[in-house]
Design a protein around this nucleic acid. Structure first.
Length: 442
RNA sequence: GCCCCGAUAGUAUAGUCCGGUCUAGAAUACUGGCCUGUCGAGCCAGUGACCCGGGUUCAAAUCCCGGUCGGGGCGCCA
């Protein structure tokens, strides 16, 4: 089987200064360049690429014979000596002493890993395992990982505790969005659309400052480049707030910390993707209803007073903010209560408007949240106003009878953040194995 | 859920409007050959395709209908 000693280095760890060292590298054959009596194998692992150079007369003949059999994407291990060489990529190459083929391919790969031909997204997703080997695809997920890490770094420093909330629900978690039903013994259950309500319960139980990283499901048959049936969110909730502005402050810090982390730790990946990260500074611009109607009207967009805005408005507002404040990010606050769920807190003096906040990044909603209603009577009143069955929501509302501090939070979509950060044309690019109405495999 | 567009080798495409010179073209991958510093290596040769079903026609990749799958816009949303 595997007779070679285990890998001593990832490719990226090997530098020209390691000349004359004996190393073992292992990975996939990224590219082959056969010049006859001179052959190059470009080997790829998680961290990068390295060139294996075989020369007739220098390299043992049996290695050269073996190398002739190697094809793209074979898995090989190579033991050899590092040689510093200015004409080799990154100034170093490996002169092999031993090569072992660990796994072969059948011919005709459905996705070109070395990137000579760009496949359609659908073909790529059908063959996602192969697709993920492409360095530029791998880079997206390294960046995503750092983004989430950066967001968590901030949360932990600021006293937020990570919690895990249930994904199976005995009742729909929000009005409006479609839910996936689940067979749950002899009961009807659903996959959550949002960890929202359980986060609130966690906060009023006394956990105070929490975050939850996890999936949500929406059974919407949406055919757009920005919807998934399964997506992940970094959902934050905090208690004892004065108003929604404290929630927004947390969100700003979280975004800044995430983007900063990506900028610092993903220099090569960003370069590979040709992207530059603009780390925003706080506070982010804020647009509020009903002032938004006036702004929109300036640009010839008439939205009836008290109504929600549409996609076109979102674009108009994003352009407006980019021009006026030079910012990719902005908050939209004080949405009409009538378009928001029962649990949001209204402005007491102007009950038409809610302390409900969306975060828009490069013209796309990446998060929504705000201050929640914590007063039991008000919650019940709003449930009645929305025409929801109070009995059905009792599992949630009951707990507000026994002391609930003012609180608020938000859920920021991880795939959408990644998509906007890297200007990906489809959110599916930002999900490892995306779930869409038609796609449930692999 | 509504609306628009598309489907040609393993991949990505040309050809479709205006049916016949399409025996379907170039690329890349694949197979074979040449080549001692490539870096999307190069050169030569070869294999390989019109989504499915029905219709119109002397003749369909091309026109019409249905299906399936895919892309996008809106709604909704993270």
């Amino acid at each position: 089987m595997f007779r070679m000693p285990i890998r001593t280095h990832y490719t990226a760890e090997i530098k020209p200064e390691d000349a004359e060292k004996e190393v073992v590298v292992a990975g996939w054959v990224h590219r082959l360049r056969d010049l006859g009596n001179l052959k190059f194998i470009i080997l790829r692992d998680r961290e990068g690429l390295i060139q294996i150079t075989l020369k007739k007369g220098v390299t043992a003949q049996e290695l050269i014979d073996l190398a002739e059999k190697i094809k793209d994407e074979y898995v090989i291990a190579v033991k050899g000596v590092v040689k510093a060489n200015k004409i080799a990529p990154k100034g170093r190459e490996i002169i092999p002493k031993e090569i072992e083929i660990l796994s072969r391919t059948v011919s005709n790969l459905p996705v070109s890993v070395s990137g000579k031909i760009e496949s359609n997204l659908d073909t790529r997703l059908d063959n996602r395992v192969l697709d993920l080997r492409r360095p530029e695809v791998l880079a997206v997920f390294k960046i995503q990982s750092k983004l989430v890490q950066g967001m968590q770094d901030y949360l932990r420093e600021d006293g937020f505790q990570q919690i895990f909330t249930p994904c199976l629900m005995g009742a729909a978690s929000e009005s409006g969005a479609e839910v996936f039903p689940v067979v749950y013994f002899n009961k009807s259950a659903f996959l959550r659309q949002d960890p929202q309500l359980h986060r609130q319960l966690a906060v009023i139980s006394g956990l105070d400052r929490i975050y939850d990283l996890g999936p949500s499901w929406r059974a919407e048959p949406s055919h757009t480049p920005r919807h998934l049936c399964e997506h992940r969110g970094c959902a934050v909730e905090l208690g004892f707030i004065k108003d929604e502005y404290e929630v927004m402050k947390v969100e700003e810090n979280l975004v800044i910390s995430g983007l900063k982390k990506v900028k610092e730790d993903c220099v090569e990946e960003l370069e590979l993707l040709g992207k530059e990260i603009k780390v925003p500074s706080a506070p982010f611009p804020e647009l509020r209803f009903p002032k938004i109607y006036e702004i929109l009207e300036e640009f010839g967009k008439k939205i009836p007073f008290g109504e929600d805005y549409d996609r076109e408005s979102e674009t108009i507002l994003a352009n407006y903010v980019r021009e006026k404040y030079k910012s990719d990010f902005f908050f939209v606050n004080r949405f009409p209560f009538k378009v928001k769920p029962f649990y949001v807190m209204r402005v007491d003096e102007e009950p038409q408007w809610a302390r409900s906040v969306d975060l828009i990044y490069k013209g796309l909603e990446v998060s929504s949240g705000g201050q929640r209603e914590h007063r039991y009577e008000k919650i019940m009143e709003q449930i009645r106003e929305k025409g929801i069955s109070p009995v059905g929501m009792q599992w949630f509302t009951e707990h507000f009878k026994y002391g609930a501090p003012p609180h608020g939070g938000f859920n920021i979509g991880i795939e959408r953040m990644t998509m906007q950060l890297l200007d990906l044309s489809n959110v599916r690019e930002a999900a490892l194995f995306p779930r869409t109405p038609e796609r449930l495999l692999p």
